[in-house]
Design a protein around this nucleic acid. Structure first.
Lengths: 124, 124
DNA sequence: ACCCTCCGTTCAGAAAAAGAACCTACACTC
DNA sequence: GAGTGTAGGTTCTTTTTCTGAACGGAGGGT
C-alpha cells in the first residue's frame, strides 16, 4: 500500500518503460540514456574494464559505476573477476548484450551518413 | 564577447558527442535520451502532432516541445502547417529521419527477444 | 459570451548528472 | 614499513535537467 499509488495519471520513470507495449520502448528502458549504448559499443570494441570505459567515454566515475550495475542487472553485461589476488573485475557482453549488434550497426550507419564530424572549434 | 559564453565551465555533453570520432556516439548526440527515439518511433507509426506524441508517450509537454525542436534543428523532423486558419503544425520524418528505420528495427527485435513484458505490479 | 481544442510556455520543486576528492586493497619499490 | 602506483569504485557538493501542474493565445463551436 505504500507505493502502488505513487503516480496514477502519468507513467514515467526509467523502468516504467520496461512494461511498455512497444519493444522499442522496452529497449529504451535499458539503453535510454546518453552513455549506456556507448558502454556497450566499447565492449564490442574489446574494452572491458572500469578504467577503460572511463577513459574512453569521459563519463563521470559515479555514473559509469551506476550504468555498469544497471547493465549487469539487466543481464547485458557480466561482471567477472579476471584476477584474484587483488580482486579485479571486468565486464563482458552476454549473449543478450551481443544481440545489440544489429541495432548498433544501424546507428553506426546512420551516424556515418547523417552526422559528419564537425569539429567543435578549429582553434589555432 | 560577453554573452557567447553562457556556460563557461561545463561542457554540454550532448553536443560534445556530435564531434566524436565514432558514428554511434554522433548518433547518440541526437537520440541519446529516453524520449527522442520514441518520438521517432511514433512518427513511423503515423503520429505527427504534439498532442498525439504527448498522449502516446506520457512525456511532459515542456520536454516534448524541447525534443521536437531539437529533432527539427537536426533535420530529422520537418514542421509543416497542416491547416492555416488556426495555424497548426505537424511533424513529419525527413529522409534523414526515415533512415533511422534499420536502427529502430534492430532495437525492436532486441526488445522483443530480450525484454518480455513484465507488468510493473501485479496488483490484485 | 463562454467553453473547448491544439500547441505550446512558465514556474517551483524533484531527480539526475557533473566534477572533484576520497577510500580500499593489494603490489612494488626504497 | 613508509611512500607510490593501480584498479575499481564511493562520497560529497554544485549544476543541469526533468517533472507536474498551471497558464496563455488563437481560433472554433454553440
Amino acid at each position: 500500500m505504500e507505493r502502488t499509488q505513487v503516480k496514477p495519471t502519468l507513467a514515467n520513470r526509467w523502468d516504467d518503460l520496461a512494461a511498455d507495449w512497444c519493444p522499442v520502448a522496452r529497449a529504451m528502458s535499458v539503453i535510454g540514456d546518453r552513455w549506456t549504448l556507448l558502454i556497450i559499443r566499447d565492449c564490442f570494441l574489446g574494452k572491458s574494464r572500469f578504467e577503460q570505459f572511463q577513459a574512453s567515454l569521459g563519463i563521470t566515475r559515479h555514473l559509469l559505476s551506476d550504468r555498469l550495475k544497471r547493465l549487469v542487472a539487466h543481464g547485458v553485461l557480466e561482471k567477472n573477476p579476471y584476477q584474484s589476488r587483488p580482486v579485479r573485475y571486468d565486464y563482458r557482453l552476454t549473449d543478450k548484450g551481443r544481440d545489440f549488434a544489429p541495432a548498433l550497426v544501424g546507428l553506426k550507419d546512420w551516424g556515418k551518413k547523417h552526422m559528419p564530424v564537425r569539429k567543435a572549434a578549429p582553434v589555432a
